[in-house]
Structure formats: structure tokens, C-alpha cells
Design a protein around this nucleic acid. Structure first.
Lengths: 349, 349
DNA sequence: AGCGTTACAGCAAGCGCTTTCTATATGGAA
DNA sequence: TTCCATATAGAAAGCGCTTGCTGTAACGCT
């Protein structure tokens, strides 16, 4: 039925061992023999049995990439960059690796289950992207899993995620706190004193860090924050729209709205416009991430650029052992403030 | 070293066969025995060896999803929907399946290589998304691969891709032609007579079909097309920006620009604005796909909505055998014209 | 009581590959 | 010529799991 190594061996008049060695190229095989084997492979249209090979060799060529939401370009861009470096087809590395992009939806269970699934597949490496969930029990479970993976020889890299000390994972962390602070400082510098903040889901590290940065900036400039100025929501446009209406309801005198990310910011812009407010004349808006569409917003969005593709690529290389891990296994990746049209001096200043 | 089935069996005082059956749940096992086994599994922290199990059972729980560009929400949305239906963690189906999202970059080689890799892994199913590449040799190679996969029992579903007759693949095709035609007819109906068209890459079916629809609309209304009105580019914002400048250079009297997709349309908007033209007062703009950000463009984008999530979900269910294939193995999915702010009656009409 | 069923559990034969160890040439070096 | 590297090929033992087939109690009938 299906062609096996043995069939190829028979056709090439060699032993299965030789065929295997030709295919893996890690053992001397005479050129003439190799050719004969290759010819047989071609003629029989032989395709290696991955599971069998993984079983025998006790390694696989699967690389897992965990993302919170694959439909969100934030993750798509990182996933794409990681994948381009892990040496799948078209990648520069030799062995052909299969990237397994797993969509966790940001839920603890799925995150854990996917990790188990990857462990089951004996994945060669795993890259976890995006913010982590802040729940002690879940964290502990994740850390344990990661440690187990690392012990089993799977390289684990965190990309845009806080470090997980003692687990053996390499972390490329985004400086969300610093970026958030810089962004808000920019607005304060323009003269804003009443700033609304649309945060992401409560239990995410990303959410907390960005918010902390924002508050640090306020504190540094002696601005006392009104609790009404912060609204939590999801990381999507819709949430930004609704949260903005809520903010406006709570305090119509806000002169700036800082959003947890660019999608939220876009929703905020829509809500402001629908409320008859002009950007940035009446209200300034700022986002985070600098996704491709942010520059096309009207006015273009002031935001913090995160080098998603670069970080992803680096994470991919580290996962493949093609780049050294940063000292201490932890590196902080900084964002860059992008001042654009959506932020300006407040009207009343 | 690592815990195996046998270890669990020993601990639970049963045979390996019994453990396997408890884990797979496809054979009667006494409740008391099952419990004992489950307890041992838990105590030993046993994780099934995927490759070994795939080898023995001659099936795997991997499902491949091929996308042209994972960083593009067009594909991200479909991938997400497919994944939610294939019964991975959180999905409603029983068996836990691992979705393998493969980023082909739209290149023939990678497309083919990934298919081979999936074949090698004995994937349970494969979903190919997005437009196909129009190259006779490549098509033939792809069809042959697909046929082989189908013969080997892998269910192959095409989502947003033209049918591949005689290969055993189920096709959920987007009616790009019809959508393109409807869109252009809308513009013509508004009074536009000089319409620029920014097409995607030449060799893609999606590109060709949308363009054909556009031209069919022109023809149907007796509008003779000026060859200068069509520019080919990539499916991204940048390309839209540049192409628009080119169109404007070629014929400054254009009153409408139809883009191959929404990203391109956004780039077009930027180019028009940078050229001092107002949308839609001076020039109308239209996109395709209706990605989430399109409604947030200013003005919001007139476009053709493609039910990406619905189609993806359906493709996922079909791939899992949870939904019947459409009659003849082919279904056409229609788009819906979304008339919004970026299109209006031309100034000079 | 005798016997066919039914419900479990175990045996053992692989699944298709990798890899260690062994065998056989072949070609110098002595 | 003799002997030992060196190069290349094969034999065979698994890798860890699944599953067809074979027991063997326990049960319900007649």
C-alpha cells in the first residue's frame, strides 16, 4: 500500500539502514550508492513516515508557537517572524521543521493543554508569545510544564512575555512598562492633565505593565489620577469603542485617551468621532504596538512601536539554537515612541 | 528516564494494553480498573508519546492549515475559525487535535514542501486557504500531492480557493468574481466612469477573479477600459500606496480607485490624501474582504464582506467530518457589498 | 447443573524507522 | 606479503504504542 523504507531499500538493492542514512545524511555513504537510493526514492515517490522516524530517533521536527489570538496581527507578525527563522521550508536552516501555531485564545486551559500536546509530540522547541495570565495557580502549572519541557530537551523561548525564572526558558520581554510611561509622558508634555486609560483584560501581564507605566508617568508629574479614568476591556476595537463612550460618560472633560493597544485605540477614535469630538483637536488618542494599520488611521496614531518582527525572529533563532541566549536568559526589548497626528496640545491649555 | 505506558501499567498492575485502552477510551474497561490506571497516570505524570502512538495507530491528530501570510488578518481570521472547529483544546470535538498553521508566503515551493511535511506527519486533515498560484506546472504538482494525501486518508479542504477537480478535495470557494463585479457596479451606479484598479500579484487566482469581476462590470455598462487604469502589486498597504500614486500619475482624472483588498485600499487612501485629494469628494475608494479595521478607516471603507470566519469554521468542520461536504464537493461562498463612506457620487458628474 | 454469553484483561505481533555493532573490502604501511 | 587502518554496508535490536486474538471469570438461561 504505502511505500516504506524497506521498499526503497529493495528497489535500490541496499539495506534499509543505508536508505535511512542517505536520507539523513549523517553517515558516510558511497556516492554511487546514494544515487541509486535517491533514484529509488524518486521512482517510488517515497515519503518518510514522520512519526516512525520521530519514535526511533526520539526527536521530532515540530516547533510549537503559542499565541493568544492568531487573528490579531500583533501575534500574526510575531508568528510569521518566528516561523521564518525556524528553518521550515524557505527558512535558511537545513532541517525542515514544521511550525505548529497554537491559538490559545488567551485562556489558561488551552494554553496548558497545548503545551501538553506539544510535549506529547516531543516538540523540538516551543515559543510562547504575548502576555501571560496573572493567576498564581495557572502560573505555577505553566512553569511546571515549561520546566518539564525544558528538561526533556525542548528549548522554550518566551517572546513578549515576562520571564519565568527557574524554568529554563529564555525570555525576550517587551518593556511595556517603559513604553507606557514614555507614551503618557509625551501626552503630559503636551499639556494634558486629564487622561483616560483603556486597559486590557485585568489578568494579563501586558495590561498591568502598560497601565503601571501610565500611572508612573502621571505620578512623576504630580497628576492625581481619578479612578474613573481607567476602564478595563478586551484587546479589540469593539472594546475600545465601548470603553471610550464609558469614559466620556464618566468625565466629559478628558483631553486624552490612552489605549491598551492600537486596535483599542482605533475603536476609541471611532467612538470619539461618533460623539462629535475631533482628534486631536478635542481629544488626543494614543495606542500601543504600532501595528501596520496604525499609520493609516486618520489622523495617524501616536503609539509605541514594538519590534515584533525583530523580536520574533530573534526568538526563533534562539529556539533553534542558532543564536546565543541573552545573558541571564533574559533580555528586555524596548519600544519606541511614535508621535503622530492623533496627539496634540489640548484645546483648553 | 521518561515515563512510558509500561511504567503506568506496572504501577496500576495491569497490562500496557489496558492502559492504552483507558487512554483511548475505545474499548470496555471496568470502572475500577480505569480509575486505578488514571491514578497511576496522574501520579507518574505520564504524557503519551505522540509519535509512537501515531506510528502504531497509523493516524495522527495533526491538522494542517496552509496560509499565504499569517500576519495578514485575512488568513488569521480563517485560521482561527478553522482551528476552533477542529477540536483542539477548547474546541467542541472530543479528540484533541493539534492545528499546524503553515505560512507559505505564497510561494510555490513552500506550499509544496509544507504539503509534503504534512504528508510525512500523516496529518489527519489539511485545509488550504486563500488564492492559488496560477502556474500550470505548480498546479499539477499541487493537485498530485493533494490527490495523494486524499488517497492516504487525509481529508483535504480548500477554503477560499478554487476547486481542484479530481483530487478528492472539498472546495469552499469565494465568489471573488461576483463580488468584484458587484462592487464596481456600485461605483458605476454612482456615476463613476473612470475607475482605477489596483490588482494583486498577477499569478493569483484571487487577483484574476476580482479583476475579471471588475472588468465584467465595466463591460456590462459599456465602459471601455483604459489599460493604464490597472496596476498590479502585492496584497499590502504599501503596494496600495505606491500603485495609487502611479495611477494618479497615469491619469489624474480618475474618480474612483478599486483595490484588490482592504489593506491595499488603505494604502490607496493614504496616497490620495497625501496627494491632496479628499475621499470620497474627489476620489472614491473601494476595498475587498471587509477586514475588521476597514470600518474604522476614515471615511469607512466601501468593500465586499467575505464571511471569513464562517467559511473557515465550515471548512474546519468538513475537515473533521463533522459536516457533510457540499454537493459535488464544491460550494461557492458569496460576498456581501458593504457600502460605506469611502464611495460617493463623483464630483464631476 | 450445564452451557452459551457477555465483559474484561492480557499476549504478542507488529507499525516504520534509527542506530549500534559487526562484517567485509580496500588500500596502504611495514 | 602481512597486518591494520579506513570506508562502507548490513543485521538486528529496539523506540513506545495499538489492536486482533485469545483467555477466563461471572452471569443468565433452560
Amino acid at each position: 500500500m504505502t511505500v516504506t523504507l524497506a521498499d526503497v531499500a529493495a528497489r535500490a538493492q541496499v539495506s534499509p539502514a543505508t536508505v535511512s542514512r542517505v536520507l539523513n545524511g549523517n553517515y558516510p555513504v558511497a556516492a554511487s550508492t546514494r544515487e541509486r537510493v535517491l533514484k529509488a526514492v524518486d521512482e517510488l515517490d517515497y515519503v518518510l513516515n514522520g512519526p516512525a522516524s520521530a519514535l526511533a530517533a526520539a526527536t521530532s521536527d515540530l516547533v510549537g508557537i503559542l499565541v493568544n489570538d492568531i487573528a490579531d496581527p500583533f501575534f500574526g507578525i510575531m508568528a510569521s517572524a518566528i516561523q521564518s527563522e525556524i528553518g521550515g521550508p524557505g527558512g535558511r536552516a537545513g532541517g525542515e521543521r514544521l511550525a505548529v501555531v497554537c491559538n490559545t485564545g488567551g485562556t489558561p486551559e488551552r494554553e496548558l493543554t497545548y503545551l501538553t500536546l506539544l510535549q506529547r509530540q516531543r516538540a523540538a522547541a516551543v515559543v510562547l508569545t504575548g502576555g501571560a495570565i496573572e493567576d498564581a495557580a495557572h502560573q505555577a502549572a505553566m512553569d511546571a510544564k515549561v520546566r518539564k519541557l525544558a528538561e526533556a530537551g525542548t528549548r522554550v523561548v518566551l517572546c513578549g512575555r515576562p520571564p519565568a525564572p527557574e524554568t529554563g526558558a529564555i525570555a525576550l520581554t517587551f518593556d511595556n512598562r517603559g513604553g507606557g510611561q514614555e507614551l503618557t509622558e509625551h501626552l503630559i508634555g503636551l499639556g494634558h492633565r486629564r487622561l483616560g486609560y483603556i486597559a486590557g483584560p485585568e489578568e494579563r501581564t501586558t495590561t498591568r505593565h502598560r497601565l503601571e507605566g501610565h500611572r508612573a508617568a502621571l505620578a512623576a508629574h504630580g497628576i492625581e489620577e481619578d479612578p474613573r479614568w481607567t476602564v478595563h476591556g478586551r484587546y479589540d476595537r469593539r472594546s475600545g469603542y465601548e470603553a471610550t463612550l464609558e469614559l466620556l460618560r464618566r468625565d466629559p472633560s478628558l483631553t486624552a485617551v490612552v489605549a491598551a493597544n492600537d486596535s483599542v485605540a482605533l475603536g476609541a477614535c471611532a467612538a470619539l468621532r461618533d460623539s462629535g469630538l475631533r482628534i486631536p483637536d478635542d481629544v488626543s488618542v494614543a495606542g500601543f504596538d504600532d501595528l501596520p494599520f496604525s499609520i493609516d488611521a486618520v489622523p495617524s496614531l501616536t503609539t509605541v512601536r514594538l519590534p515584533l518582527a525583530e523580536a520574533g525572529a530573534r526568538a526563533g533563532r534562539i529556539a533553534m539554537g542558532r543564536e546565543e541566549a541573552p545573558p541571564g536568559g533574559i533580555a528586555s526589548v524596548r519600544g519606541e515612541l511614535m508621535v503622530r497626528g492623533s496627539s496634540a496640545v489640548p484645546r483648553d491649555s
